[in-house]
């Protein structure tokens, strides 16, 4: 039982890291540029396809991952210049619709090029196998690597945002964009940079998820909606909030699915418990978000914003 619990705990952590990679870009783009980007999930998908294709071409997963960065960055750059930039000063409704249009375009575009059958990737040789954590408990190395990458990204982001001049500008821009523009910061360039960096994180998450799931059309959408839940729980615009939200959502979702049916089985007959358990566990993260928003309507770590 404890072993199963630890395994699920690590699985939850690993899902949390994926969610963090996607949420980080989402929350930065929203906090700094005031843009809701539904197409962020498409960038996740583009990353996954880029890694799958480049891995097959080069024969190396790591080379594929490395080469996928310029591909994702190029897509992000074009999206930012053509579509996002005209939307800066439009209301959220317009942003939701235009980026929804992007999702339709990318989903169909990918299925034209690659077809509807999913692509599969193997876990790279160097990261296959499992790590013996205790005598009786082992955990896949690849998943541990993902958790490590997530933590590293979190650390780097924390450093950039808290310790560097660029980070100071980002924080200032999130609080008061007009003021930072008046102080002579090239906000346009900063916007584009943030969008591309956020896209790279999403693309990285997509690429890393390739060997764990199948690479297919629409793969980013569920993660996108979960990421929205994360950043809303954490408070939009806050990286700390995104990390906390991602870990909470990852753990609640994974542990809920693993243990809720059994837990309910203590009180109810097995069939009912399974039914209700399955329903409750798939709804759990949304319930969590709703509860958070009822008590803290702007999330746990709201970013102060000048009116």
């Amino acid at each position: 039982m404890t072993q199963l619990f630890f395994e699920q705990l690590l699985n939850g952590l690993q899902l949390g890291m994926f969610l963090f990679l996607v949420s980080a870009g989402l929350t930065l783009v929203f906090g700094f540029m005031n843009i809701i980007n539904l197409a962020h999930g498409s960038l996740f998908m583009i990353g996954a396809y880029a890694v799958a294709v480049l891995t097959n071409l080069t024969g190396s997963f790591f080379l594929g991952l490395l080469l996928s960065f310029p591909v994702v960055a190029a897509f992000a750059l074009v999206i930012e210049l053509l579509i996002i930039r005209p939307l800066y000063h439009r209301d959220h409704l317009d942003q939701v619709l235009a980026t929804f249009g992007l999702i339709l375009f990318f989903n169909e575009g990918v299925s034209i090029v690659f077809g509807r059958t999913p692509l599969f990737l193997n876990v790279p040789e160097a990261l296959s196998g499992a790590v013996q954590i205790t005598d009786t408990f082992s955990y896949p190395l690849y998943r541990i690597a993902i958790i490590t990458v997530g933590l590293m990204v979190a650390a780097i982001l924390w450093f950039i945002i808290v310790k560097t001049r660029t980070g100071m500008r980002i924080r200032a821009g999130t609080t008061n964009p007009e003021m930072i523009r008046a102080l002579g910061v090239n906000i346009q360039a900063l916007n584009t940079t943030i969008f591309v960096v956020g896209a790279l994180f999403a693309g990285l998450a997509g690429g890393l998820s390739g060997p764990l799931t199948s690479v297919e059309v629409g793969m980013g959408e569920n993660l996108l909606i979960l990421s929205f839940v994360c950043i809303v729980i954490g408070g939009i615009g806050s990286i700390r909030g995104a990390l906390l939200g991602a870990l909470t959502v990852g753990l609640v979702d994974t542990l809920g699915r693993a243990f809720l049916p059994d837990l309910l089985g203590q009180f109810l007959d097995p069939a009912t418990a399974n039914g209700i358990g399955a329903a409750l566990s798939s709804m759990s993260v949304y319930l969590l978000m709703i509860i958070v928003l009822i008590f803290k309507p702007t999330g746990l770590f709201p970013v102060a914003r000048a009116a």
Partner: peptide, 28 residues
């Protein structure tokens, strides 16, 4: 519940309620 929030949070909370019902129906 949702109307306690505003703006983008309202967009997100309605999206979440929608997803909740979607998964509720899936689990029936």
């Amino acid at each position: 519940l949702a109307l306690r929030t505003k703006g983008v949070y309202f967009i997100m909370i309605t999206l979440s309620f929608g997803q909740m019902l979607f998964f509720l129906f899936v689990s029936l």
